[in-house]
């Protein structure tokens, strides 16, 4: 049971702190999609889903690029 509780704590901490930037980016992408779907012109509203897809793609690539650069820097300094 303590292992399960520790797992819950580690994952909650990881979600809110370690993955913070990615999480904020994801929330921003969802908020932008919601705003477009609710308040934009009809033509743009129909494309709101694809805007979300584009933002997720950019988030994935940017996040992994940064992770890769950080890993490369750590390996060079160690």
């Amino acid at each position: 049971m303590s292992s399960v509780l520790r797992g819950i704590w580690d994952n909650t901490y990881g979600l809110l702190v370690d993955d913070g930037q990615l999480a904020v980016g994801a929330i921003a992408a969802l908020a932008i999609t919601w705003l477009i779907a609710q308040y934009s012109s009809e033509a743009l509203r129909e494309d709101a889903g694809w805007v979300l897809v584009a933002m997720v793609v950019v988030l994935i690539v940017a996040n992994l690029y940064r992770a890769g650069r950080n890993a490369h820097r750590r390996r060079r300094t160690s």
Partner: peptide
């Protein structure tokens, strides 16, 4: 090669 996780950003 490196152990890269999104969490390590």
């Amino acid at each position: 090669g490196a152990h890269v996780e999104a969490r390590n950003v």
